[in-house]
């Protein structure tokens, strides 16, 4: 009926009694980059985390509404959260490779899925690292600790790690906010490459980054979705005054 990968209907989220997301509805298309922007505390990261049920880890969270991924409501009682998260990967703000070798980091996902054959793992590791554009940098030190790499490299290792479980959607929570401009540029380039095969949703504080990388942009403010549209339109001719004010730096 439609080709939207993710459909959100009237999603509200509460931390205790505090309403953090108010009746959000949006549709996210497949194999595009969708950026969420907005000031700190506006709920964009919280919203991102509802898309692979990462908020389940936090106590005291109540969620109302529906999120459909491939037309399946992921807040249905019968949903297998573990398999959902295999399909919807996540990259965090602070790179978080395990204190293991680069190889073991990438192979972690396949291994927990029961792949133990060395040749298959080798292939997955190489493919994932190549996809994450870090193969050339680490191919000689696959068995060194991932923590010995630079911050930017660690973040790309994390991206490679999530690619290794073959997700369809990749959620990125400010993936470049702790990185220098060169590493940031590499991550952005990578996002551009990855969108050919994956649906990418990215939260960012950096509006230029949203403008550069995304196809669609959504502005959040105090738990409300203010406006969502094609990125060129948001940045050149937004429908709402609030959006215009925010992107021109007048508030937020």
């Amino acid at each position: 009926m439609d080709d939207y990968k993710v459909k959100v209907k009237d999603l509200s989220l509460r931390y205790g009694t505090n309403l953090a997301l108010k009746n959000i509805s949006m549709d996210i298309p497949e194999k595009k980059v969708t950026a969420f922007i907005g000031p700190s505390g506006c709920g964009k990261s919280t919203f991102l985390r509802t898309l692979n049920r990462m908020n389940d880890l936090i106590d005291n969270v109540t969620i109302e509404g529906e999120v459909y991924i491939d037309n399946i409501n992921i807040y249905d009682k019968n949903i297998d959260v573990v398999n959902l998260r295999k399909k919807v990967g996540m990259i965090f703000q602070k790179s978080n490779p395990f204190a293991k070798s680069v190889y073991d980091n990438i192979a972690f996902g396949p291994r927990i899925n029961g792949i133990s054959q060395k040749s298959v793992l080798d292939e997955i590791v190489e493919r994932s690292l190549k996809q994450a554009a870090i193969w050339d940098e680490v191919k000689d030190r696959l068995f060194h600790s991932a923590l010995s790499l630079s911050g930017g490299q660690q973040q790309r290792i994390c991206i490679a790690r999530s690619l290794a479980v073959n997700p369809e959607i990749i959620l990125m929570d400010e993936p470049a906010s702790a990185l220098d401009p060169i590493s940031t540029a590499k991550i952005e380039e990578l996002i551009h490459e990855l969108k050919k095969e994956y649906t990418i949703i990215i939260v960012t504080h950096n509006m230029q980054q949203a403008a550069r990388t995304s196809d669609l942009t959504a502005l959040f403010y105090l738990g409300d979705l203010i406006e969502m549209n094609r990125t060129e339109i948001i940045f050149s001719n937004p429908a709402k005054k609030q959006t215009e004010d925010y992107i021109s730096g007048r508030f937020g």
Binding site: M54, R85, K86, N96, G109, S162
Partner: peptide
């Protein structure tokens, strides 16, 4: 153990 490890692992679809 940093919470980020747990998030990373769960985010990869580990139980």
């Amino acid at each position: 153990i940093p919470k980020t490890f747990i998030e990373a692992s769960l985010g990869l679809g580990a139980s």
